[in-house]
Amino acid sequence: MENNVSFVWGPVQISASILTTWGIMGVMSLVAWLSTRHLAMLPKGLQTLAEGIVSVIDDAVSAVAPEQSREIMPFIATLWLFLIVANLVGLIPELHSPTSDLSVTSALAVIVFVSVHWFGIKTLGIKNYLHHYLTPSPILLPFHIISEFTRTIALAIRLFGNMMSLEMAAMLILLVAGFLAPIPILMLHIIEALVQAYIFGMLALIYLAGAMQSQQLNSQE
């Protein structure tokens, strides 16, 4: 995929992915504001939809990390919502999914990587948190460190590879086949976008929960 720099502002290069991300952020913020503008005890319309989404995500997070769900739910929910919208935005003509840009998926993976350590240290304390790298044996420390980096890279590459390949496949089929041929591919795009968002968010949730609950697991052992 070519480097799609729209304009340059000093040392900062503003790419199409960033512009699309800003658009997504604007739309999501607007929808969030509209849905929570007039909250009522008896929800209706947009509030019902918004409460449904938040409740589903909250339940999913609570199922994995019941004690820390309130703390990490906003982060995981933002990841899920952003990835769903970002993955699906590629269906709109003339727009590309930001997640088909390796810089974007890398940024998200790094955010997850940093968040894992941040929430782990915040919950357990730095000593306890670092101690879990030495369990069950200090010999495994290098493997723990390698694991931390490889899973972050895997997060970034998996999402980027799937989304980029989907867009490329759709474009190739559109070029080779006729007008209506890409429709099944577009449907596959929708499913794949949702699945990839779910996988990314769920893996991030599992990493976070693992980091925050490692001390508990060690003490139980």
Binding site: N3, Q13, S17, T21, M28, T78, F82, S103, F160
Partner: peptide, 22 residues
Amino acid sequence: MEFNVSTFVLEIINFLVLLWVL
């Protein structure tokens, strides 16, 4: 498949801003 540092940094900032807003 090029890595752009500006996009990488801005995306982190964007996500944090989106997280704060949401």
